[in-house]
Amino acid sequence: MSNITAADVKKLRDQTGAGMMDCKKALVEAEGDYEKAIEILRTKGQKLSVKRAEREAKEGVVIAAVSDDKKNGVVIKLSCETDFVAKNEGFVDFAKKIASIALENLPESKEELGNLTIGDISISEKVVEQVGVIGEKIELAGYEKLSSDMVVPYIHMGYRAGVIVGLNSDDSKVEEAGKDVAMQVAAMKPVALDKDNVEQSVIDKEIEIGKEQARQEGKPEQILEKIALGKLNKFFQENTLLNQNFVKDSKATVREYLQSVDKNLTVTDFKHLMLG
């Protein structure tokens, strides 16, 4: 059996983030073969990942980031089981690294992001590896991207939510307005940008709910549709970003607030991920 030195163990630990004893055991099992020891640790992670597949990973961190020119933005969610792990500096740094790779490459989907490499392995493989290191379920649970004239990020306290907002202007004076709107998204959780962006299935459901509510109130059948459409307009006001009351000034809608900053200013799109 090869002589396993403390330096060997430290080198493996620095590479993988695994515990010292886990690294030593892997090196012993691999008879000192460094690459084989890494594979043993990954295999441990894969087995643990399968074992914990049914566990809920409702904690974690959400990272929002934009490019230096502020033309592109991404938001990613890295989930784990416990708040203890979510607050670990190494876990947060890992999530930030994934966000950085996403921002550099702008993949089209979460699956494509998982296939990108971090070091010498894919992000998906690295996530599985970290399951073995940390000892609980970890998953890349969400990814969104956005491109616009200006993209503004916002991360809610404790990395519990992340938002990116696209604006139709690259004038630096509108950036603060973008931050205000990003905070609005995090607080009010709109389902769409404007009423024209709401999915038809959602509209149909709201109309049916409105009809049934009116029916339960004893309203005549012939006016149920009209009542439901009135309720639908209220739904649009409360749940579409540009029509919501602005949280910092309830006398204005978000659209009106933006126009007060610049008469042509508007939001082109937004992306929002949160824990839970």
Rank of each mutant, 00 (worst) to 15 (best):
Gly132Met: 07
Leu103Lys: 13
Lys173Cys: 07
Gly142Ala: 14
Gly32His: 00
Val254Phe: 04
Ser67Val: 11
Ala177His: 06
Ile101Asp: 04
Thr117Lys: 15
Asp196Ser: 14
Leu232Ser: 06
Tyr159Pro: 00
Asn115His: 07
Glu39Leu: 12
Thr240Asn: 01
Lys71Met: 13
Gln216Cys: 07
Val74Gln: 04
Asp120Tyr: 07
Arg255Glu: 15
Asn115Gln: 13
Phe91Asn: 02
Leu106Met: 15
Asn243Lys: 15
Lys234Leu: 06
Gly218Ile: 08
Thr16Glu: 01
Leu224Asp: 03
Lys58Trp: 06
Ile98Gln: 04
Met20Ser: 11
Gln15Lys: 13
Ala102Phe: 09
Gln200Leu: 13
Ser260Thr: 14
Ser2Met: 00
Glu89Asn: 11
Ser109Phe: 08
Asp180Gly: 10
Ile203Asn: 01
Ser250Pro: 09
Thr240Gln: 06
Val165Phe: 00
Gly19Glu: 05
Leu146Gly: 08
Leu113Gly: 03
Val181Met: 02
Met274His: 14
Asn105Phe: 00
Thr266Glu: 12
Gly90Phe: 05
Lys71Thr: 14
Ile38Val: 15
Leu224Pro: 01
Ser147Gly: 11
Ser100Asp: 14
Tyr34Ser: 03
Gly17Cys: 13
Glu125Ala: 15
Ile134Val: 15
Ile223Arg: 02
Val198Glu: 05
Ile123Ser: 04
Gln237Thr: 12
Asp120Cys: 03
Val74Gly: 07
Tyr34Glu: 04
Glu56Met: 12
Phe236Leu: 05
Asp93Ser: 15
Asp249Glu: 13
Lys173Trp: 04
Thr16Trp: 00
Thr82Asp: 07
Met20Phe: 15
Ala252His: 15
Gly276Thr: 07
Ala18Met: 04
Ala182Leu: 06
Phe84Ala: 11
Asp180Arg: 11
Phe94Trp: 03
Leu241Thr: 10
Ala53Lys: 14
Asp22Arg: 03
Ser172Asp: 14
Leu258Ile: 13
Val62Ile: 11
Phe94Pro: 06
Val267Gly: 03
Ala7Trp: 00
Glu35His: 02
Lys70Met: 14
Leu27His: 00
Leu224Asn: 06
Leu78Phe: 10
Val85Thr: 10
Asn88His: 11
Ala18Val: 05
Tyr154Leu: 13
Asn264Asp: 15
Ala161Phe: 04
